[in-house]
Amino acid sequence: MAERKVGDKIIKVIRGDITDLPVEAFVYDITADCKLSSGYGGAIASRGGKAIQDELATFGTLATGEATVTSGGNLKAKLIIHVNGPKFHEPDTKVKLARTVQSALRQADENGITVVAFPPIGAGLYQVPLDLSAKVIVDTVSEHLKNSTTIKEVLLVAFDAREYKPFEVAINGGN
């Protein structure tokens, strides 16, 4: 398992299904209309129950780079941090992605989270290059952990080997 220590805090790369992890909170990359949709969203709805989408419906919309929090419903996670990351090659993807990660970390702090899990935000359907996503997340999280924060552990969750490698490279200082 690849990992990086930042002071007394730690970042780890793991394989798994982020929506099925027994963590305090995990990050979900949602669309601006706050609909769970399919993929991880479908898994959240299926495993977590209707309450999560009902909570989301009260928020209206979410601008790119922003984050909001709902309960985890029947999921193993207590909270879900919903972020609206950059999508489909929109301009300034890198800057927007960093801002998205910062928003997620801020939400984690505000909710007193000690363990939070991140997927490779934007990679996959939304076409953000996997290498870029991994590097921005690792750099932004590392920077955040240097400051005062409730977070003690960040899990970078790769669904498959293809997603694992870029996280591993980024956490080892490459890329």
């Binding site: 299904d17 099925d20 949709s37 399919s38 993929g39 991880y40 969203g41 479908g42 898994a43 299926s46 495993r47 997927p119 996959g124 359907l125 669904f159 498959d160």
Partner: peptide
């Protein structure tokens, strides 16, 4: 297409069947 592609990317199959 968006729904099915997202399922396949994130759940590992195009109908979102959970493990």
């Amino acid at each position: 297409v968006r729904v099915v592609s997202k399922d396949q990317w994130e759940v590992g199959n195009q109908m979102g069947v959970l493990k």
